[in-house]
Design a protein around this nucleic acid. Structure first.
Length: 776
DNA sequence: GATTAGGCTTCG
């Protein structure tokens, strides 16, 4: 090692590192002699800043003072360090340090080159000559700190994020709100973009660069807490941002309340006091009350057919696919709601335990990673634990050779780093890895092992069948054909019952059936989504846009009352339309502690707005609440209208169960930036309605015909009823699923499913717990 | 000691 630290143990330096060298006095140094087995030692009396030569080599110049022989004529000497050694030393040295330099060259500088004109000696040290520098360390400290100021920095001050000044270099603490795991930039360094927030509720986006991957903050998820030292503050496009400056150093902590406070850092030495401990805990408490825990961390069994999410998994196999894509086979011990696609590769290129991967079957998924992620993926070791950020799922419908429709779930890690897309290896010490290992150990491999027999027995009858499995899942025919397997994970204790037998029996009972889906209703998707009150159990239609416009217009016929504008809760603005009879629209911007938040965090109350206007505003502002002027206060419209609009999501309340409270109650929400629908509903006295699927299925197994109802289900094959009306992608997925169950052509499909009869003659069919089988 | 990126999903 070219740079070593000599620590003191009980006040005695551990100098055995130097025992292989002989010490020489400054006065006996002569140019041209062999110093490959010698060392000199002295106190750092002067340090110049790092300079660079024309060819890019770094040079650091210091002056050492000999403690012994202090009355000697020659008791100081200049030492020049070159290249990487110079940079490393610049990070570590500070005035007053005791330093030893072993293996060096002595040269004589010409008298003209020295200020006093005397003949003077220089020491040169560089890695090529195997020079080694030893620094005596009294106590653990953050070295980089001192390299900046050359003043012992035992106490750091931390600047709150609302007091940052352009051009300053500061130390900050914050909770991670967004991050891109380190990736290779287009320049020479790795880059990580990290947005933090602190108790001042001010956010700061930081651009962190380092030639060393490990030197960037070791952030695993949003909510982690970071400490940055020597962050430079600058302004770019009118926004304040942080950027690494010389000597940047970071610590990262888990953000979970109660978790041990263990700093993650690659720095060998750093300053960490009880005050730091307190700061971390204070930020944890603040974050738990002010930052909604909207984790994108999901298990495979919970993924939707169209989604971006973060996956914690173990690497089973990897393979080159082509120049721009690379295959990763991973698992997390749970089964996806749809079988994973299988990416075609040549058998020989797959690295990994093939028999184990085969044994896992549908527990293993295929992920294609693209472009910039390929080189990272290629470098991963089989068996390692990973977090893959912003992994994209896509449900794909494929027509197989046997002409049946097949569904498969694709996993893509697209190119680029948007939304923090990337891969990070997790250490074994990570608590999420700990949990994952337990799941992997107890994963039920038997479900995929004892399938063959079931499949064969059902293949014999020659019907094409659909299949479904897992907690909420659907397995397609092709998997069955390829693997000669059927997936049966739940309710295997239930024998299949013919429909004629079910029709004769009394409810409630549970059955497993195998039947053709003759038809289902409603055929139009929007008709199958309803609003459901969890308190009074009332079901109602989701208002159409046309009706909604009328409801909004009727709800706010009154001209906005000027008396109710600009209160302590909100600032108001009035617009008058030109060609619509001078219609007045009032917008009230809700303040956060008296200050207007950024538009993407701002709730606005709107009076007299049309649906199209509200839609436009809801894209710009965090939340919109339609209101009207009441006698003493602004008030909510009739609950036929949504009480809250976020992006395209309309939140409704139950007319029967809600008892409206004053708008001013919004003031009681502590955090006026995240506007969680349930919290808003609560302070306004509203019982929120849930989006649910309501559908009817007609089954026929040749022995009888049975109507099955899917009731009050917030999800259908993992597709949330609350999102499907506003997502084209989810609607396509739904169409694919229904087309497979009930193909538009003459083909008839058998479905095996688990039925739960609720009350005669209504039978509640719970897809959540269904078990189905496949056959070809 | 500059550069990188400057969050804001691909379209395979």
């Amino acid at each position: 090692m070219p740079l070593e630290l000599i620590k003191e143990v009980s006040g005695v330096p551990e100098v055995q590192l130097l025992s292989k060298f002989h010490k020489v006095d400054f006065k006996s140094l002569r140019p041209g002699c062999d110093y490959s087995k010698k060392y000199i030692q002295g106190k750092l009396s002067l340090i110049s800043s790092l300079t660079y030569r024309g060819n890019g080599t770094a040079v650091l110049k210091i002056e050492l003072q000999e403690k012994e022989n202090s009355n000697s004529e020659v008791n100081t000497i200049n030492v020049l360090f070159f290249g990487k050694l110079a940079k490393d030393c610049a990070d570590v040295f500070y005035q007053g340090d005791t330093i030893a330099v072993a293996r060096f060259v002595v040269i004589s500088a010409s008298p003209s080159a020295t200020s006093d004109g005397k003949n003077c000696l220089f020491l040169k040290a560089f890695e090529g000559f195997k020079s080694t520098v030893y620094v005596y360390v009294k106590s653990v400290r953050d070295f980089s700190a001192e390299s900046m100021s050359l003043v012992p920095a035992t106490h750091y001050t931390y600047t709150p994020l609302d007091q940052l000044k352009d051009g300053t270099v500061v130390n900050v603490y914050g909770v991670v709100k967004f991050f891109k795991p380190p990736y290779l930039s287009k320049g020479t360094d790795y880059c990580s973009v990290v947005t933090i927030v602190d108790q001042t509720n001010v956010k700061l986006t930081c651009l962190l660069f380092s030639g060393n991957y490990e030197a960037l903050p070791i952030i695993y998820k949003n909510g982690d807490i970071v400490r940055f030292h020597r962050l430079k503050i600058q302004v770019y496009k009118n926004e304040t941002q942080g950027i690494t400056s010389s000597g940047f150093a970071s610590l990262t902590f888990e953000g979970t309340l109660g978790a041990p406070v263990i700093p993650r850092t690659s720095s060998k030495y750093f300053n960490f006091t009880s005050e730091d401990h307190k700061r971390v805990e204070a930020l944890r408490v603040w974050a738990s009350n002010h930052i909604p825990s909207s984790s994108t961390l999901l298990k495979l069994c919970d993924v939707q057919p169209m989604q971006y999410f973060d996956l914690t998994c173990q690497l089973l196999g990897k393979a080159e696919v082509d120049g721009t894509s690379f295959l990763l086979k991973v698992w997390d011990g749970t089964r996806t709601p749809f079988p994973s696609w299988r990416v075609l590769i040549q058998d020989l290129v797959l690295e990994g335990d093939l028999s184990f991967i085969h044994q896992l079957q549908n527990l293993a998924i295929d992920i294609l990673v693209y472009d910039n992620h390929v080189r990272v993926a290629r470098s991963l070791k089989i068996g390692c634990f990973l977090r893959i950020y912003s992994l994209h799922t896509k449900l794909q419908s494929v027509n197989s050779e046997t002409q049946s429709t097949l569904l498969a779930l694709e996993f893509h890690l697209h190119g680029g780093t948007s939304y923090g897309r990337g891969i990070r290896v997790l250490p074994e010490s990570n608590s999420d890895v700990d949990q994952l290992k337990k799941v992997l150990e107890s994963a039920d491999l038997t479900a995929s092992q004892h399938l063959g027999g079931v499949c064969l027995s059902q293949c014999e009858d020659g019907f094409p069948t659909m299949s479904s499995s897992g907690s909420v899942s659907l397995y397609e025919v092709e998997r069955c054909q390829q693997l000669s397997a059927t997936i049966l994970t739940d309710h295997q204790h239930l024998e299949k019952t013919p429909l004629c037998a079910i029709l004769k029996q009394k409810a409630p009972q549970q059955y497993r059936i195998r039947a053709k889906l003759r038809s289902y209703k409603p055929r139009r998707l929007y008709q199958s989504v309803k609003l459901y009150c969890p308190e009074c159990h009332m079901l109602q239609e989701v208002p159409h846009d046309g009706d909604l416009d009328i409801i909004l217009q009727e709800g706010a016929t009154k001209t906005p009352d000027t008396k109710l504008q600009n209160t302590s809760l909100y600032d108001s603005n009035i617009w008058t339309t030109k060609d619509q009879g001078e219609r007045k629209v009032a917008i009230h911007f809700v303040k956060n502690n008296g200050i207007l938040p950024l538009s993407n965090e701002c709730l606005i109350l709107i009076e007299g707005g049309m649906l199209s206007e509200i839609c436009k505003l809801s894209n710009k502002f965090h939340s919109v609440i339609p209101v009207r002027s009441g006698n003493e206060d602004l008030e909510l419209l009739d609950l036929s209208a949504p009480f809250l609009i976020q992006r395209n999501v309309h939140h409704y309340g139950c007319k029967q169960c809600s008892s409206l409270k004053p708008i001013q109650n919004l003031n009681s929400l502590v955090d006026k930036t995240s506007w969680i629908p349930s919290s808003v509903a609560e302070v306004l006295g509203i019982v929120p309605l849930q989006y649910v699927f309501v559908m009817t299925f007609t089954f026929d197994d040749g022995t009888g015909v049975l109507e099955a109802y899917l009731m009050d289900s917030d999800k259908f094959f993992q597709i949330p009823a609350s999102e499907i009306l506003i997502s084209d992608d989810l609607q396509k997925s739904m169409d694919m699923i229904m087309d497979m169950f009930c193909p538009p052509g003459a083909k008839i499909v058998f479905i095996a499913l688990h039925l739960f009869s609720l009350r005669p003659p209504v039978i509640k069919q719970t897809f959540q717990n269904e078990t189905t089988s496949t056959a070809s």
